[in-house]
């Protein structure tokens, strides 16, 4: 029983990280049709930014950790917004080239991170509570799982509120459905493009700081590692669907944890799940029919 609880909560924590990456990917794809390979780099840079903050100001204080989260998110958002403005925008409506540009950016930035911080993982510190465990139904659950889950839930609520109650949110929801018609109402959707990149980048940057707590280290490959599963989550959930991304993130991560524990090949199970979903529902769980 306690094993199951532990696997479940750990899976939810991992799902939270997947969601923080996949939410941005899904929104960007939904609105712009761009598959963003650089998204992992947003996460990695956010993680390193948070780590630098903690390293300089003292890792064990909660205030510094909060600041690290904010800085990670801000750095992720700024990096993402610049990516949109300087690279993606120039290739407006040329989807394949847009993907290629993000591929190039991903390769170049990971190499740059390696050059700057070294290619080996840096083990990290944090507030003492995060290293501890909490007893849930007899299972000693590492506290950083709760933090990741809480943060992801807050981000989900935040994005939902933003989409529902702001004018930009309205534009984004409409644009995901029919971008041409949004421009035909006199709205410059390109502002919304920069914005979804920034929002996605902020979520990824935040995810970076949390992921480094979850795994216990930062490394230049942190983002790429999560990105592939976030892609899978996005496809399973349905490209462009935020709720789909949330549901699929939990599904994929929990399944992965259980399969890893009982069989050792969780990652393969995830790929099989993807194949199954595509055979039964090519548009994903909550995606619109293409």
């Amino acid at each position: 029983m306690s094993t199951i609880v532990l696997l479940l909560i750990t899976g939810l924590g991992l799902g939270a990280l997947y969601f923080l990456v996949a939410s941005g990917l899904s929104l960007i794809y939904g609105l712009m049709g761009v598959l963003n390979f650089a998204h992992g780099s947003f996460l990695t840079l956010g993680a390193f930014a948070g780590w630098e903050v903690a390293r300089r100001l003292g890792a064990d204080s909660w205030g510094v950790f909060g600041l690290a989260l904010v800085v990670g998110a801000a750095v992720g958002a700024a990096f993402a917004a610049l990516t949109e403005l300087l690279l993606v925008r120039r290739l407006y409506e040329r989807h394949i080239e847009q993907v290629l540009v993000t591929v190039g950016l991903a390769l170049a930035t990971v190499a740059l991170f390696e050059g700057t911080w070294g290619s080996d993982p840096e083990f990290i510190e944090g507030p003492a509570w995060l290293r501890g465990t909490t007893d849930v139904a007899g299972a000693p659950v590492p506290n950083d799982r709760f933090l990741a889950i809480g943060a992801a839930v807050l981000v989900l609520i935040g994005i939902v509120l933003f989409l529902r109650y702001t004018r930009f949110g309205l534009i984004i929801r409409a644009g995901v459905e029919n971008r041409a018609m949004v421009t035909a109402l006199g709205i410059d959707v390109r502002k919304a493009f920069t914005l979804v990149f920034a929002v996605g980048g902020a979520a990824a940057g935040l995810g970076g700081v949390l992921a480094s707590q979850y795994f216990g280290y930062v490394s230049p490959h942190l983002g790429a590692q999560l990105l592939i599963f976030a892609f899978i989550v996005t496809v399973i959930g349905g490209l462009g669907s935020l709720t789909g991304a949330a549901v699929a993130a939990v599904l994929v991560a929990v399944l992965q944890q259980f399969a890893n524990y009982y069989w050792g090949y969780g990652d393969l199970v995830v790929v099989l799940l993807l194949a199954l979903v595509l055979l039964v529902r090519p548009s994903g769980l909550l995606g619109r029919r293409a």
């Binding site: 290629l100 540009v101 170049a108 050059g115």
Partner: peptide
């Protein structure tokens, strides 16, 4: 740092070619 990372140069070159 950038010049000692072949992949950084190749990645950047690639971005430039695409653009």
């Amino acid at each position: 740092v950038p010049l000692s990372e072949p992949l950084f140069i190749l990645g950047t070159l690639f971005v430039l070619v695409v653009l």
